[in-house]
Design a protein around this nucleic acid. Sequence first.
DNA 1: CATCTCCGGATTGTTGACAATCTTCACAGG
DNA 2: CCTGTGAAGATTGTCAACAATCCGGAGATG
Lengths: 224, 224
Amino acid sequence: MSSPAGFQPVHRESTSSLITRALREGIMNGRLPAGAQLSEAGLAAEFGVSRGPLREAMQRLVQEGLVRSELNRGLFVKELDEAEIRDLYLTRTAIETAAAYTLAHSARASEGAQRLRERAAAMAEAVAAGDLNALADADFAFHEELVSLSGSPRLHRVHETLMVETRMCMTALQETYFDPEDQVAEHSRIAEAIAAGDDEGLRREIEEHMQEALDRLVRAGHQG
Amino acid sequence: MSSPAGFQPVHRESTSSLITRALREGIMNGRLPAGAQLSEAGLAAEFGVSRGPLREAMQRLVQEGLVRSELNRGLFVKELDEAEIRDLYLTRTAIETAAAYTLAHSARASEGAQRLRERAAAMAEAVAAGDLNALADADFAFHEELVSLSGSPRLHRVHETLMVETRMCMTALQETYFDPEDQVAEHSRIAEAIAAGDDEGLRREIEEHMQEALDRLVRAGHQG
DNA sequence: CATCTCCGGATTGTTGACAATCTTCACAGG
DNA sequence: CCTGTGAAGATTGTCAACAATCCGGAGATG
């Protein structure tokens, strides 16, 4: 047994890590709405653990910036005003552009582009089925796949937080897709720019895509 | 007292936040070298607190990616191999490029460029004095200022972690500046590109600057 | 010699209790 | 009416003890 191969170290997760993910999920889907206080006793009871591990998980969320801490008062889900939403999309643009660049210049560029085409196709199916919820899921899956394919652990970690914030926004504003067909087309163009290795086009497509998504969100915020 | 103005909410910091910063500092300057285990009992005794707040601080570092957690075994300062260092600089390039862009297109572009010129001048002074340690400090101060001036809380938060990792690398590899004069010149060119609003030049200067810094680090890693 | 078992010591994970702080409300005084 | 006081209740911050797990070596067994 001296030259083993093919096995990865078993991945066991700590309690605080599990709770962190559950809380992130709650923030995304609006079960923990913006501005809400995270009650230690209440949440600990729900998760069936004591306050210790729960506090550790909440400190992770503070570090992520999803939660704001007020000393001796409690932790509150961060509220995103317009300036924050703009900053969110500024950062998303930076991260996803870098990820797309890296992918486009990597050996797996064409394979990656294919994977993204499939994600875009899934979006098209959702549109055809008239399922706007599935469209939103496929939309997020596309962007997560894009960053995953870059192979960068740092871009991936940062992006994960940004996606939670994006979903939180969309949930809060009940935003719906104005022109679903165009949504699919924008994503397809990004995939094709990666396949073609078109740096300038890639940057332009992502920039425009983000700008439009941001405008939609800001408009929805002004109306809602 | 109904229309007060000019006061900001008092900023009190939690214990875990203070400890987090102290630990980050330790990772940067090599007091907690890569691969070292963070002993809960030992560190708690040093800080004069119980293990509770200390564990909360350590979970923040896990979320930041500065520390790796092995279940029931402990927390260890993350070790950076060549692939990780490349990823670090990839991410730094993404963040700092976005920050520079934002600053260059903002109303405070010229003011910001001036601040950066002053930082570059401080680097030049360090070089003239032959103080390579002060040069390193001024170098980091330039990049921190650049991201701060962007006004983006997200870019700033991410960048903070990246700077810790960068310093950790340089400390571990005992890297020294090969051509200090050129270092100053590279930074000056970035400041001038911001002042001129030269997007393309800005991207090129930052890209080259990062690439050279990365190459230096990788070479130092191969030799050390 | 290699392997298995078991044990002691050390470290981490978790818990419940205690101390400190904040919030809310009622109430007295100017 | 506005301000200040004080106590009750609830929540957060901290701690020390307990349980679970891991690591090392001693010793037995084949």
